[in-house]
Design a binder for these strands. Structure first.
Lengths: 108, 108
DNA sequence: TTGACTACCCTAGTTTATCTAGGGTAGGCT
DNA sequence: AGCCTACCCTAGATAAACTAGGGTAGTCAA
């Protein structure tokens, strides 16, 4: 089963990837999300890169061009303290909201 | 804590409300969702009514004007078999996706 | 009887995020 | 030389939610 990224959850997924694995480039983030979810969530590149740019503007990440292990140019993103705070907020919010939804849909 | 309706979940919340309580009017659906979630999820009327119209077009619900207990005109929506199927699909999808997201955000 | 409040329905315009569908560079291997 | 993979990016379409309105009609109290 393959599913779209639920709107509003992408920032959280990206931020958490960076929090777990340290600085990563976009391609790596996409791969990580895809593999961790066993291909259920696939982040399209056309979705990912604009999101990363918005996150730069918001100050949640910083970027730097480096060379990968494969000897290719890539832009590495690092979490800022603000990004870390944002991640905590988004996870809290996600928990509250999914719990609320469950209250509606769960009882037979 | 008050939160927006996560995009993509509104149909499911409406369908489930109808499945649980039988035919309801829009206002009642909104109240039910709000009360069940203890005010965490608030469905704006400008969101709800267009959604109900789309659901009519999709054939998930049927509508009928009746009079409420309060002696007011109201449009009562009833789940169709298709709507019931759609509800099951959406709940399954919701479970799969939230589980996938948890796999990314859960581990420390 | 008028005014306020509540119960109900609806539309228009804006915003935001995602998707699709492209385009592009450059390394490594055959 | 040609292909595959690893990487980055943009533009346009789509969809769904939000904000901010407008409107009718019943009930109740002043």
């Amino acid at each position: 089963m393959r599913a779209d990224i639920p709107p509003g959850t992408l920032y959280m997924l990206i931020l958490k990837s960076l929090a777990r694995l340290g600085p990563m480039h976009g391609y790596g983030i996409a791969l990580h999300i895809q593999q961790t979810t066993e291909d259920i969530l696939q982040v399209e590149e056309g979705t990912l890169y604009p999101a990363l740019q918005r996150m730069l503007i918001k100050g949640w990440v910083e970027a730097e061009w480096r060379t990968t292990e494969n000897n290719r140019r890539a832009r590495y993103y690092t979490l800022t303290p603000e990004g870390r705070r944002q991640l905590a907020t988004e996870i809290r919010q996600f928990d509250v909201v999914t719990a609320a939804i469950r209250r509606v849909i769960e009882p037979a």
